[in-house]
Design a protein around this nucleic acid. Structure first.
Lengths: 256, 256
DNA sequence: CTTTTCGCTTGATTTTTGTCAAGCACATCC
DNA sequence: GGATGTGCTTGACAAAAATCAAGCGAAAAG
């Protein structure tokens, strides 16, 4: 691909990592790096393997899956555009605890781990940026553990939907809550209104993936959606309409 | 209180953080810091509160608990001597996602968060050290999520016991180790030499805490111990004897 | 156009876990 | 000594979720 190089740089430039470390450090990181355009289903690395790369998602999405020796597997977390993973294995020179599977056609930058570690020691800006990345990631998992341990299936789904709606509506348009008409469900960023009112979001993964991420079976997820209808949640395909965000928030906090 | 200062420094000196950042950075971190000797049950901070400190455990142990608005609460993780927490909240200037409760009488260093953040920017060694701490902590939670999502109660307990036995037997060769009444184990072969044999470990927390950490009720934990008797696990009070570590490892991987 | 496949839902049933209640060993307190 | 609590276990029961088994509609393949 002739455009591969330039596109890669453009995309890399728009990641939070780049903003944090700047051009010099970024180009150092990219020494020996390779870009891959991978189709859905491709496996970046396997649980238990040596961590030879740190991965940066230029576009697309990747699921971190694990099976822990059992026949079936689950999804630990899902990462999207701009995210860097799985640094901990590479940094500590330990085997991956998870596998990484491409969930939607993706362009992924493979940064050699040894080079990454060297840069971590030599470039304070990189270390500082990684602290923020890892701190943010820690909080993702803490939230998830809280969900798994003290909420039941339908509540976990509710909490997830609330988080999606907030992520979609919050940062970008925190404007006054408005009648949210069903706009074409944009695949990139779900639309939604902020705190109070109604919101329509788009599920960005197939339901079996969502189920695994939420720690339940697809059947249970289906039933969880059915339960949430009583709370004003309607799902049609990938679009989910929430009639009253505040009510749903109340539901996951107080129910049980 | 006269000895408090010196003891504090001695203890602080023996933490991994100190080894990583050195004396200069450490003393910078300790500007405005305070030491507290806290009894079991003391609360360091509450879920949802502003993160004004980063905490370093000089001695003792602390549980990270959460309730997510529900009446009952759970334990997300337990930290011990030398551990630093909860940096992510302080670093990102976000509210704590968990509360921290002292589990055994502890001496804890409170490092002011704003000072910590400033040091993070100014001292590359600190940033680099935090990267390792956070990377290690990430892996703790990933393991836990895997357990919660794909193992059932008894298997989670088994996995926990195996990890304990490995931690005790592996790194420091157990040496003097734990004076756990039951000698039992293979003669000459102290605690779980990572591969095969027998091992005796001491539970370091009351069972209700362990249950919460493992994501189950105390009743379920009790039954899980009963189930594991069939796998050669005998527990008497806080001492747990594992007849065959390899068998237990097989049990958590393959059972299902 | 027809057939197959896939993603999802629904129902019936079983397994797992939580809840409620009782009881025991052991400590502390009066 | 006896009363009171606490930590843990056990049993009976209820709730939650997984599993097994169809079934349906839409997209993909023939």
């Amino acid at each position: 691909m002739i455009t591969s190089r330039t596109t890669t740089w453009e995309l890399a430039r728009s990641t939070p990592l780049f903003s944090a470390v700047g051009e010099a450090v970024m180009s150092r990181l990219m020494r020996g790096a390779l870009v891959q355009v991978l189709p859905k289903g491709a496996v970046l690395f396997e649980e238990g393997a040596e961590a030879n790369f740190v991965h940066l998602i230029l576009s697309g999405s990747v699921g971190l899956t694990a099976s822990a020796g059992k026949p079936d597997s689950t999804v630990v977390e899902i990462f999207r555009d701009g995210e860097l993973f799985v640094a901990p294995a590479a940094i500590l020179e330990l085997p991956y605890l998870v596998s990484a599977v491409v969930l939607a056609d993706s362009r992924i930058l493979f940064l050699p781990a040894d080079n990454f570690r060297a840069a971590l020691d030599a470039e304070p800006k990189l270390a500082r940026a990684m602290v923020n990345v890892l701190a943010r990631h820690w909080r993702l998992l803490v939230e998830q553990i809280k969900d798994l341990k003290l909420r039941q299936a339908a509540e976990r789904l509710a909490a997830f939907l609330v988080a999606q709606a907030e992520a979609a509506g919050g940062p970008a348009a925190a404007a006054a809550g408005k009648p949210v008409g069903k706009e074409g469900a944009a695949p990139g960023a779900p639309a939604g209104s902020a705190s109070g009112g109604a919101s329509t979001i788009a599920l960005r993964e197939p339901r079996n993936m969502l189920a695994a991420r939420l720690g339940m079976t697809p059947e249970s997820l289906s039933r969880a959606f059915a339960q949430l209808e009583a709370e004003g949640v309607v799902s049609e395909g990938r679009a989910v309409h929430i009639a009253d965000l505040a009510r749903l928030r109340r539901y996951c906090a107080l129910e049980g």
